[in-house]
Amino acid sequence: MGMSAGYHLARRGVKTLLIDAFDPPHTEGSHHGETRLIRHAYSGDPTYIDMALRAQVLWKEAEEESGTALLVPSGVLNLADSNVYSFAGRLAEAEKRKVRVEQMDADEICRRWPALNLPEHFEAMFEPDAGYLYSEKCIAAYRKLALVHGAQLLTNTSVLNVTAREDSVTVHTRSGDYYGAAAILSAGAWFGSLSAFAALPIHAIRKVVGWFQSTPAFDAGNFPGFTLGTREGSYYGFPGIGGAGLKIGRHDTGREWKPGETLAPFGSEESDEKDLRQVLETYMPGAAGRLLKGAVCKYEHTPDEDFIIDRHPAHDNVLLAGGFSGHGFKFSSVVGEILADLATGGASTVNIKPFSLSRFDSSPVQPQSGLPLEGIE
């Protein structure tokens, strides 16, 4: 989100400094692992659909400007056990917003993708205009474009604290202090390290993904990106790209992680491979070959799994953007645009009221129950 905002600001001629504790793209946040889904059919507040459609436009613009392929229109196949999840809300909103979707029963799903092994009570919602993004290439493209437009980037520079006045913000780092009229904080899973200045209800958890040897039926071009909601849990994944094998991750569950703690590598817990393999053996047996690679990343999310995009409660010239993991990466192109609008003009044309920080003030937010397929990738 920060790299995207830096690009949008620099493109407008705003003097922009980007500060990162590492050297993006990197493996210390929530953006690595090669791919992220981009889909459009959400239920609930229509802001998500509006943002997803705008995000896709902006990704295509970034592709053209950078000369880098970022988005693959593979389609996204959303699969679910109808006893535990219904697509009714998303189908209804998709019809209202003119998002192309196809509803299928198990027979139709297995006719089109015969390598799947689904019980008859499964159903699907297929989004033919959706697909996946090359997440690290997206970060690299925005970095390149931001610098081309005049932004400056400080890498390997940890932020120790932030202080603000009415007309200025100071960012304190190990290499010195930096000053600006306004600031955007998008620290992801590392927001806990800034809690003295911005105490947000954002929690980070350890997540794993694995790449498994798979048959050609699951290769890119033959199989789409997917989500999978079952009694066993909530999963997402991608076809095999360039011989890398099918990639799959679990959306629910995970062990809490805090800034400064060591992130245990893939395989440290028996469930790392076991959970992924079991669901593949049950529903995608042709993709349950040997583990080719495993990776660990961090989810950072709010209690209700909706984003935070708001001004600091005490400082109007500081913007806070966080809680994006699980389904946020696809939106980073448009979130950067929103943040640039707020930083320079004071308002955004996008309805960001659902992402207000004040929603956590009135009453405790209950975690989402059941299979959280709305917030998956």
Rank of each mutant, 00 (worst) to 15 (best):
T35Q: 07
V350W: 13
P73M: 08
V99C: 03
G375A: 03
L200F: 01
V162A: 15
G260V: 07
G326C: 07
D310Q: 04
W211N: 04
T344W: 14
P24W: 00
Q213V: 11
L17F: 09
G289N: 12
R39G: 05
S186C: 13
W113S: 06
E270Y: 05
E34Q: 15
E64H: 14
I19C: 14
R12A: 15
R12F: 14
A199I: 00
E269R: 15
H327L: 01
G221Q: 01
K96G: 08
L70K: 00
T349P: 14
E136I: 09
S86K: 10
A94F: 00
I241P: 07
P128R: 03
F126Q: 00
G2W: 13
V99P: 02
P367H: 03
D23M: 12
S193W: 09
E93L: 11
G289R: 11
Q213T: 11
F212H: 04
G192W: 00
G240P: 02
E256L: 11
L320N: 04
G375R: 00
S333E: 12
I241K: 08
V76A: 01
A62C: 14
S356I: 09
R250W: 06
V162M: 15
E337C: 13
K330V: 12
F226P: 05
Y283D: 08
A347G: 08
E377S: 13
A199E: 00
K353V: 09
L70S: 03
V101Y: 12
D306Y: 03
G210W: 08
L228Q: 10
E300W: 03
V101P: 06
E166P: 04
Q103V: 15
G326I: 07
L320D: 01
A244E: 11
A196S: 13
V335L: 14
Y48N: 05
R206I: 09
E166A: 09
N78A: 09
Y134I: 10
L153P: 10
G346F: 12
T155R: 13
V279M: 04
P239T: 01
A217K: 03
A115N: 02
Q56A: 15
S195F: 13
A295N: 09
I308R: 00
D107E: 15
G33Q: 06
Y7G: 06
E305T: 11
N78Q: 11
